[in-house]
Design a protein around this nucleic acid. Structure first.
Lengths: 208, 208
DNA sequence: CGGTAACCGGAAGATGCCCTCCACTTGAGC
DNA sequence: GCTCAAGTGGAGGGCATCTTCCGGTTACCG
């Protein structure tokens, strides 16, 4: 009762355990079967009643958001890591491959990321930051002449949506298909006849 | 009453008209909004009661199958046409582009084709015949050195599934995205340094 | 033109989903 | 230990969907 409003209320230990079990169960189930799983089923797998589930997460959307918040965070950190790779092209390739693999491994994630709840605010915000970082990756990869000049950051969305279409029964099959897809994409994205990176020559150098 | 069993019973003219209207309405609605449209809605748009719809098509699956039967036929004929293109690489490119565009234009089609009712028998059968023809296209395109040797016919499924992921609000946006996707794919599929087509030299020619 | 079988539309049954209500239980502080 | 607010589970409300039922209607055939 005496807690600061707006701050997360301290939960009773059993409630805390139930909450954790719910999140774990939801994560697992969403990953395996996508977002079209009933709340009843999630509660059943977590070993709690459906009311317990709804007290913690007032709506299914809030549950989905909570479940995928950290995955989304992992995505953006992956982009930021790529932005700091000393080899711009390698960074670009790695981030594309990594994002696609994450998507392929978790069936619910891509649905949550791309289609399900497009007006989830923190998603959009984080997405915007990631996109900004990705733009940097793109520019650097173009700068060394490895990425084709007509590549745009929107093409990442294209890749992710395409990758999202690779729905299969088993996760392994999805990952394998995704890998091949990414390999094709990266070859298409590579500049036709990659030039050696441009060098900025000082006059001193030129005059020996 | 006096018709050969196993043959399609002759319908009364009003029933025939209603059946046609149902099919037209379903085609249109599935194309625009995908397969997740209620039978009630389809009946409403066709101007008939839902019972009429169910008398003609005992289940939703049967309606979907009937609606997309001819689209599927168009697909396979597209593949066969490509198999007869004098330029193998052009035939290959065209069939990939054409199939993807058809998919992008009709939102329900790709769903019906790839995911919704995977055990629809005529679908599988027709698919098998189309795949056989496509294998010929692939071989010829490889033969002239334009298609990379490690391309397999399964990659067409990869392309179609990827293309299927490009779900957008408007059809035009989907088609545009699909076009760009296909362009990327075709560049990736092209042999790295395409050789001029191999020629079979007879000794007569060589000895002048 | 009349009989009848085929046909029709809308109401209602069955199922599955998200979510709420409420009587009962339990952990936490004194 | 005792109190009681916080927590709990399952029944069921509201809604949407696919599908069936049934009383009234209509096209076909002789």
């Amino acid at each position: 009762m005496r807690d600061v409003p707006g701050e997360t209320t301290r939960l009773r230990v059993d409630a805390r355990q139930n909450r954790d079990r719910i999140l774990a169960s939801a994560r697992e189930t969403f990953a395996a079967d996508g977002l079209d799983v009933s709340m009843t089923e999630i509660a059943r797998r977590a070993g709690v009643g459906v009311a317990t589930l709804y007290r913690r997460f007032p709506t299914k959307e809030s549950l989905v958001r909570e479940v995928f918040a950290d995955q989304l965070e992992a995505c953006t950190s992956e982009v930021h890591r790529a932005a700091e790779d000393p080899d711009p092209w390698r960074g670009f390739c790695r981030v594309v491959a990594k994002l696609c693999e994450m998507q392929a491994r978790d069936r619910g994630f891509s649905a949550a990321f791309l289609t399900a709840f497009p007006d989830a605010v923190p998603v959009d915000e984080m997405r915007a930051r990631a996109e900004e970082a990705f733009a940097g990756v793109v520019e650097r990869a173009k700068g060394v002449g490895m990425l084709r000049p007509d590549f745009t950051t929107d093409d990442l969305t294209l890749v992710l949506m395409a990758n999202n279409g690779l729905v299969t029964d088993s996760v392994d099959a999805a990952v394998a298909a995704s890998r091949r897809l990414v390999a094709y994409f990266l070859q298409a994205f590579q500049a036709r006849d990659p030039l050696p990176p441009p060098v900025r020559l000082g006059l001193r150098d030129a005059l020996g």
